[in-house]
Write a protein that binds this DNA or RNA. Structure first.
Length: 208
DNA sequence: AACTAGCACAACCGCATTCCT
DNA sequence: AAGGAATGCGGTTGTGCTAGT
């Protein structure tokens, strides 16, 4: 268990007063230096708790409420490509947090996918999903700047949330598969060969 | 009305990675 | 280059709410 300098570390649900203190602190000093936040804000919380509370709940840019159909569709496609790398997936969904995406996946989307594929004779395995733990991407050489294709580092050439969503969806559609049914077949493929697994992983690395 | 199961989501924990000295 | 500190991430757990019995 972590300690901070303020004394006994509080745990559990955040109170509105604690939220106000944390907001004030972030507005004054900005994000980052999380080890200093509990002291600056006068909170008996560990730095991790403060960071999580801000990133998952208090940050003004966070979009609350149910995921739209488009967002769910995008999550399914990105999960096929990236596996359980929730922060990467959330990074493609403006206003959504990794925790939100993860919770949504675990409580809704996965069950939905499972039930919709239950009629299939093939069973779901994780052999063709990109490994979930983050890798040391810094060791991967950067892409050739003279080429600009889907294998290069890519950023949406647009500004608004809707445009970004549309851009990613189109990209995934054209580079991965033509429709959702095809994707479900891919998800159900049992014992995918190692070569395909490797290619999927390489795609994920390029995207990140 | 009381109890229980299931769901949704916030928060915690442990570990990998990155940063800094 | 090495080691410790800080940060970030994914898995898991805890808790409150609701619907069903």
């Amino acid at each position: 268990m972590e300690k901070n300098d303020v004394g006994v570390v509080r745990k559990g649900a955040w109170t509105p007063e604690e939220d106000i203190l944390l907001r004030k602190c972030i507005h004054t000093f900005g994000e980052g230096k999380w080890h200093l936040v509990p002291i600056r804000a006068g909170l008996n919380r560990c730095r991790k708790s403060c960071r999580l509370r801000w990133l998952n709940y208090l940050k003004p840019s966070i979009k609350r409420g149910q995921f739209t159909k488009d967002e769910v569709d995008l999550i399914i496609r990105l999960h096929k490509l990236l596996g359980n790398r929730w922060s990467l997936i959330a990074g493609r969904l403006p206003g959504r947090t990794a925790n939100d995406v993860k919770n949504s996946w675990n409580s809704h989307i996965e069950k939905k996918l499972r039930s919709s594929s239950s009629s299939s004779t093939k069973t779901i395995t994780r052999t063709n999903i990109v490994r979930s733990r983050p890798q040391a991407f810094s060791n991967i050489p950067p892409p050739d700047p003279t080429t600009h294709d889907v294998n290069s580092k890519i950023d949406p050439p647009c500004e608004t949330d809707d445009e970004i969503m549309r851009w990613w969806r189109d990209l995934l559609r054209t580079t991965l598969m033509e429709d959702h049914d095809q994707m479900m077949q891919l998800v159900n493929i049992n014992n995918a060969d190692a070569d395909e697994d490797h290619q999927t992983e390489m795609s994920a690395r390029r995207l990140s």
